[in-house]
């Protein structure tokens, strides 16, 4: 998971390496990979938040957090922006995910992590959960404006266990059916809520059972797509709030 591969593909030594050792992913697959790792940048107080981050992170090399005073001075919308562009703590080792062929034709078991070596701190994750309704509204507003849902927004949806976003996400997916990671969000929501019909399915066994690989995926085809959409819609209807 978790780091940009496409940019690296442009490196000559790696291109050579790929040519020798690994079949090159198609242009479509590479473009899709890049899109998967693209974040959404919220507009709310963006300049102010960036300026504050620049002050705490002069060399851009360390995990740094705003002081409590500065953090508390931010409005809810500005905090949202801060969290979506600046994780405060280190992510654990074992983040590297190898590139895969035909990435644009696969529904993965997990969305890619958004921030490479970094991850949201506890206060950041707590903020998302404690302000779930507001954060969901901001994500919807931002997604409708930009016509995309970045990997950081998807990660936030899962962090908040935002089941209530499902109808919006289904509609959003159905606009062009290109962002297969939205199908992954549905799979992960059903998995983390232990939705019984899903837990008994062949899909769950392939993606999340004891012997499933972390990089497991389903082939993207109309049957799998329809099944996921139907299941997640049923899950939403039966979800006990």
């Amino acid at each position: 998971m978790k780091f940009l591969f496409l940019g690296l593909l442009s490196l000559l030594p790696f291109r050579t390496l790929l040519a020798q050792e690994y079949p090159m992913p198609s242009k479509e697959s590479m473009a899709y990979h890049e899109a998967r790792f693209r974040k959404s940048i919220p507009p709310y107080g963006l300049a102010k938040v960036k300026e504050m981050i620049a002050k705490i992170q002069p060399d851009a090399d360390e995990a740094e957090a705003l002081s409590s005073r500065d953090y508390l001075s931010l409005s809810l919308r500005e905090k949202f922006t801060y969290h979506m562009i600046h994780p405060e703590t280190y992510a654990q080792n074992c983040d590297a995910v190898p590139p895969v062929m035909d990435e644009n034709k696969k529904i993965f078991s997990r969305i890619p992590s958004s921030f490479g070596d970094f991850i949201w701190s506890k206060r950041q994750a707590d903020f998302l959960v404690e302000n779930k309704d507001s954060v969901c509204a901001l994500i919807k507003e931002s997604a409708l404006r930009s016509k995309r849902i970045g990997c950081n927004y998807k990660e936030a949806i899962l962090e908040m266990n935002a089941v209530e976003m499902i109808p919006f996400l289904v509609d959003f997916y159905n606009r062009d059916k290109k962002d297969l990671d939205l199908l992954t969000v549905f799979l992960q929501l059903m998995e983390q809520n232990k939705y019984e019909p899903f837990m008994k399915s062949a899909s769950w066994k392939k993606l999340y059972s004891e012997n499933a690989s972390y990089e497991a995926y389903l082939d993207y085809n109309s049957a799998n797509e329809a099944l996921i959409l139907q299941r997640v819609t049923d899950f939403y209807k039966n979800y006990k709030r």
């Binding site: 780091f3 074992c94 983040d95 590297a96 499933a212």
Partner: peptide, 22 residues
Amino acid sequence: SKNSCSFFNSVDIGNIHRHASF
């Protein structure tokens, strides 16, 4: 674990920030 990470093998290579302590 088998389901998370499973880097206990001779092939995988992890990335980590050089000042991170886990």
